Amino acid sequence: MQDVARAAGVSPMTVSNVVNNRPHVREATRAKVLAAMDRLGYRVNIAARNLRAGRTQTIGLAVPEVDRPYFAELAARVVRHARAAGYRVVVEETGALREEELDAIAWSRNSLYDGLILSTVALAPADRDLLPVDFPVVILGERIFDAPVDHIAMPNTEGARAATAHLIARGCRRIAMVTGPDLEETNVSSLRYAGYREALRAAGLPEDRRGVVRLPLLTLESGAEAAHRLARAGAGYDGVVAVTDTVALGVIRGLADAGVAVPGEVKVVGFDNIGIGGFTVPALSTIDPDNDWIAARAVELLLERIRGDGVPGRPRDVVSPFTLIERESTRR
Rank of each mutant, 00 (worst) to 15 (best):
R26F: 07
A242Q: 05
A36C: 08
G308C: 07
L303C: 07
A160T: 10
G95P: 11
R232S: 12
R173D: 06
V318M: 15
R316P: 05
P181D: 10
E93I: 06
R332G: 12
D245M: 03
A176Q: 02
V10P: 13
I144G: 06
R52K: 13
A124S: 15
A35V: 13
E73V: 05
A194T: 14
Y70I: 02
D290K: 15
A53T: 11
N273I: 03
N156G: 10
R232C: 01
V268D: 01
L303V: 10
G275L: 05
R161P: 03
R297L: 09
S108V: 06
L302S: 12
V213C: 08
W293L: 08
H81D: 14
R83E: 13
S329T: 02
L97M: 12
A48H: 10
G223E: 01
G259H: 01
L255K: 04
R192P: 00
P148G: 09
E99S: 13
N21Q: 15
V212P: 00
G95T: 13
E300I: 01
I306Y: 08
G277H: 04
T14V: 15
R332C: 01
N21I: 09
A122G: 12
T179M: 03
H151C: 15
R39F: 11
R22Q: 15
R68Y: 08
T56R: 09
T330Q: 01
D127F: 08
P132H: 05
A224R: 09
A72R: 08
P148L: 05
L116S: 05
V90L: 15
R316V: 15
